[in-house]
Design a protein around this nucleic acid. Structure first.
Length: 659
DNA sequence: TCTGCCCTAAACACTA
DNA sequence: ATAGTGTTTAGGGCAG
């Protein structure tokens, strides 16, 4: 009650509510600490006008671009999808370009698209002698990108777009998850005009627009399957899963409803379904268009699978595995429907991973090999931009169980630095990260503040809020220990306490369905992944989720080791405790220690170095290449000489026991 | 529903 | 007096 009354009377943080959707560069009332490139009031036109003008121009260009896209779709006989600088998702093609608002534009266009668009516009402006306004334009560009990135992030957190903001569309096209497909289908199905549907199907470019080998989407694939045969006979529907195989005698019928993409009509029995099928999904333009989309989806997946299979072969070859293990690939794709996959519990963290390598060729209930899914819940957006409205995302999707912060930050450092996006980590994890990143593994409060503002654009505003939260967290969590120092108080991390906060199961780590697919395809890979976060990452990337939200990549990667890797025991802060970090570790550790102690190195150590001073090498992208394939190949972790760090990691597993 | 975690907000005390 | 720091309480949301 006290709080309520207080909040009614006094509002010390006046503008917490300002979301991120404002294009005007919000000069955060608070703080304005370092790194604030400010001031750009110049010239004859006011910055606001200028921004407005530029925005209008950008939008105009975007509209023209869309018109081009749309007209490109109209060309009936074209075998090639028009290769525009940027590709437009099908949903975009559905919109009347003239009706697109700036917000829609930002939401529709992926960052690359947006950037390309704006760059075009920028070039145009330069040609028109508007170069003097470049600065403002750049700012607008950045802001629009940020907005778009945020949107993408939101999508990611909703589980809709398992992507990294930087290559959102590309990966979307590469790796449309079932929900994407469903959405896509709904969009296609919802088209009023069948011709529109055809256009969309035609224009749907599931291929990447990059140099990816799948860039030229094989439209010829359409010819492989007679369109008219699909409604009743097609068996490529990715929605089809084993359940449906058993549930109904028709691949498009299951669980009492029509499985035609985007339909979901309820049918009591098969007869009704057949009737429905014939009535609603007869051979017409719309169905044809849908089929084409579906074919492209399947084709894309197949291409992707082929690529990944090839990659896997190469990896195995490289790792001296017998490459003659394509067997799993020939198995039916356990590419279950989104529903079944998404519901699959991730209880099967590879505890049974010490299966001998022979299991590599043995399909051991593949889908249970790993945590399976990115469930929409686990990717949940947390976007309760509710009362406080401070930020779109919150917390622990990836932090709590997987602590991928190091990897995440390492990968998206620049992104967070520039984009006004709230990092998907808890304050506690961020604080810990900041502290561990420091040379002495201790920071003053102010230094923590600075780290936040330095690393995250998001924390350059709402300073009162998050600073309070930082202090709150420092005080609240036992894992943060305050130490009186010569120069005042510093904060350190009690890693033991911190680890206590983390449940020993990685149930929170979400896996993308296609990752499950890969796991199912290759038990040996899942075995490897359990040993190597890098491999996990690479694999995810290779799956076309190279731009899978780094959080989840990192989660995948780190979670696979998190159970094995109990980070070093940083006993409460003292110089001695720092030394304890490296007890029993190899020279690499001592190297790091030296580097740390003299503080001469870059203040930013490699994430692994600080977050896991035991040196789980994660970044060296060539997985354990340096003569350590053993641990990858040998599932029998205990029977083989593990690198000291890994051994430590395993032995440290029961953290609590060490107390 | 319960519980734990996380977040924001705020009050308060202490210190430089 | 003020700002910074640190502690504590309260309440709400989310997820297991």
């Amino acid at each position: 009650m006290m709080v309520e009354s207080a909040s009614e009377t006094i509002r010390t943080t006046p503008s917490n509510q300002n979301g991120v959707s404002s294009l005007s560069s919000q000069s955060d009332g608070g703080g304005g600490r370092e790194g604030g490139s400010n001031g750009d009031a110049n010239g004859e036109i006011s910055p606001v006008d200028l921004l407005h003008l530029q925005q209008q121009q950008a939008l105009q260009a975007a509209r023209q671009f869309l018109l081009q896209q749309a007209s490109g779709l109209n060309s009936p006989g074209s075998n090639e999808v028009k290769q525009s600088p940027v590709q437009v998702p099908v949903s975009m093609a559905m919109m009347s370009p003239q009706m697109i608002t700036p917000q829609q534009m930002q939401q529709i266009l992926s960052p690359p698209q947006l950037q390309a668009l704006l760059q075009q516009q920028q070039a145009l402006m330069l040609q028109q002698g508007l170069g003097s306004k470049q600065l403002a334009f750049q700012q607008q560009l950045i802001q629009m990108q940020q907005l778009q990135q945020q949107h993408i992030l939101n999508l990611q957190r909703q589980g809709l777009v398992p992507l990294q903001p930087t290559a959102a569309m590309q990966s979307l096209q590469q790796a449309m998850c079932p929900s994407d497909l469903q959405q896509l289908w709904k969009e296609v199905s919802g088209v009023p005009s069948t011709e529109e549907a055809l256009k969309q199907a035609e224009g749907l470019d599931l291929s990447t627009n990059s140099s990816n080998s799948t860039s030229a989407f094989p439209k010829a694939a359409s010819a492989h399957i007679p369109l008219h045969s699909l409604p009743n006979g097609q068996s490529h529907t990715p929605k089809r899963d084993s359940h449906e195989e058993h549930a109904g005698s028709h691949p498009l019928y299951g669980h009492g409803e029509c499985k035609w993409p985007g339909c979901e009509a309820l049918c009591e029995d098969m007869g009704q379904f057949i009737k429905h099928l014939n009535n609603e999904h007869a051979l017409d333009d719309r169905s044809t268009a849908q089929c084409r989309v579906q074919m492209q989806v399947v084709q894309q997946l197949e291409i992707q699978l082929a690529k990944e299979s090839e990659r896997l072969q190469a990896m195995m070859t490289h790792l001296h595995m017998r490459p003659s293990e394509p067997k799993p690939f020939n198995q039916p794709l356990n590419l279950a429907s989104s529903g079944s996959l998404l519901k699959r519990d991730s209880e099967a963290y590879p505890e049974g991973l010490p299966h001998p390598p022979t299991s590599a060729a043995t399909p051991i209930t593949p889908l249970r090999q790993g945590p399976s899914v990115i469930s929409s819940s686990s990717l949940h957006t947390h976007s309760h931009s509710h009362t406080h409205g401070v930020g779109p995302i919150r917390r622990r999707n990836s932090d709590k169980y997987c602590t991928p912060i190091a990897s995440e930050l390492a990968q998206n450092c620049e992104f967070y630095k520039n984009a006004d996006v709230r990092p998907p980590f808890t304050y506690a994890s961020l604080i810990r990260h900041a502290i561990l990143e420091s040379p002495d593994r201790q920071l003053t409060l102010n230094e923590i503040y600075n780290w936040f503002t330095r690393k995250f654009a998001y924390f350059r505003r709402n300073t009162a809020t998050w600073k309070n939260a930082v202090r709150h967290n420092l005080s609240l969590h036992k894992c943060f220990v305050r130490v009186e120092n010569v120069k005042g108080a510093v904060w350190t991390v009690d890693e033991v306490e911190y680890q206590k906060r983390r449940p020993p199961k990685m149930t929170g780590c979400a896996f993308h369905p296609l990752l499950s697919l890969s796991l199912s395809l290759s038990p040996s890979l899942s075995l490897c992944m359990c040993r190597s976060p890098t491999l996990v990452k690479n694999m995810i990337s290779g799956l076309g989720f190279g731009s899978l939200n780094a959080s989840y990549q990192a989660a995948l990667a780190e979670s696979s080791l998190s159970l094995l890797n109990s980070p070093p025991l940083v006993t409460p802060p003292s110089a001695a405790s720092l030394n304890m970090l490296h007890v029993g570790h190899d020279d690499v550790s001592s190297t790091v220690e030296q580097v740390n102690s003299n503080g001469s190195c870059s203040p930013t150590l490699s994430p692994q170095q600080y977050s896991h001073p035991v040196h789980v090498k994660e970044e060296p992208t060539e997985v354990e290449e340096d003569g350590r394939p053993v641990s990858l190949l040998a599932g029998v972790t205990h029977s083989l000489p593990l690198p000291s760090d890994e051994r430590d990691l395993e032995e440290d597993l029961p953290t609590e026991e060490l107390e």
